[in-house]
Design a protein around this nucleic acid. Sequence first.
DNA 1: CGTGTGTTTGACCCGTTTCAACTGGAGTGG
DNA 2: CCACTCCAGTTGAAACGGGTCAAACACACG
Lengths: 235, 235
Amino acid sequence: MECLAPITSRPIVRKALSDRQTRTISLRSECSDRPTILYHAGQKVFWEDDQANSVFLVADGVLRISRFLLDGRRGVIGFVFPGDVMGLSARGKHIYSAEAVTNCYIHALPREKLNTLLTESPTLRDEFISELCAEVSRTQSLVLNLSQKSAEERVASFILELVSKGERRTGSKVEIRMPMSRLDIADYLGLTVETVCRSLAKLKKAGHIRTVGRDIVLIERLADLRDFACADGTC
Amino acid sequence: MECLAPITSRPIVRKALSDRQTRTISLRSECSDRPTILYHAGQKVFWEDDQANSVFLVADGVLRISRFLLDGRRGVIGFVFPGDVMGLSARGKHIYSAEAVTNCYIHALPREKLNTLLTESPTLRDEFISELCAEVSRTQSLVLNLSQKSAEERVASFILELVSKGERRTGSKVEIRMPMSRLDIADYLGLTVETVCRSLAKLKKAGHIRTVGRDIVLIERLADLRDFACADGTC
DNA sequence: CGTGTGTTTGACCCGTTTCAACTGGAGTGG
DNA sequence: CCACTCCAGTTGAAACGGGTCAAACACACG
């Protein structure tokens, strides 16, 4: 989790694919060998409690993972970006639902194949465990955000997360895409859509960000936003 | 994660120890073979960013694991009970702090030993991965609680968590101990101590619970409290 | 038996939610 | 090409849940 110099996750995929000579077995390279499947925006990839037959590597697009309370309230637990793996933490059944936010191209690696690889390749096993540990850590950071931060801080933290997932630098500014709906963001941050809007408006008024259309955010000075968001140790 | 008939975790330890003939290698049995270390109430076991040299199995007592924001705000991420393992999700360094809430007896298994076992024993490897997946799932449930539930629902959910971790049945009622401070609970549920108190008071007034002293809670009808807490699928 | 710390309760305040109206693109059809 | 609809997003006003501050209480400890 590099923080000061965030890097898009996509190059990791590329690296795995181009690493021809000393091709080491890795989770991402094994996934990348499989064909991609297209999921259209809004389409579900798997549902909580579905049989978990595969793990997934996102080649392109953004997904939303969520869980529901028995009365129907939805919590969004995270967003998945290109280069991220998904569905690792399932044991038998998936523990959350995954839906495409944008059109997505996804590699699927069958569980049986994964299990074989886990036995045969110590490096892949290590990578798999690392990936699970990272998922724990990320989820814990979210817990901290939800339990300790104000609405505006949560929104700022969310923007910084997006930065770490894939930013474009235009001149000295940082530009990110925010393809998910305000409701998705609200359900992720434990807020309402209105509060998300108002928090974005406040961040604009404070000069931290500017927006272009609905889903482009420009960050004026990253360091200032970081200070404001009051991160934890992991970022 | 049994829900309707919760079981204390402790017997798992006993089972591992008494399983002499067909002694299978398991995470808990390997830990149990090590001597216990006593940590006094309030003492830290490890700190976030400490070198993670061991994984831990709690033989007796309750611990609190927490993380901090850069400005010092504390979030409690979970509580650890007898029979639970702790510190698995570290990679090199611990990702959270662990402190004893009560006096604790803890087994420590060195990481090197664990790594050997992960390579040599497929069953232990599988158990280890299951344990990590369970940690992800538990943390996600907490996210859902924090992002979607009201104060009173969170407190009710917390009580139910304690039930699943170790209850005593006295007659038809269920009795639990709540050894952690109100501040610990507040930092876990993203509330203030006052709100935790008031929520407990409301649950009492509604007839869901009764309290004896500060740390004993009696649950009148478990099913009613469950309905009120509005669980997710995992319980 | 006083002192101190954690807990509970009360009164007030503020941030977030709720409810409602409005805005602005995107898509559709005349 | 423009008018119309539709819906996500935004903004405003009022209500409310939980936070803040302060005081009372209770139990542990010297």
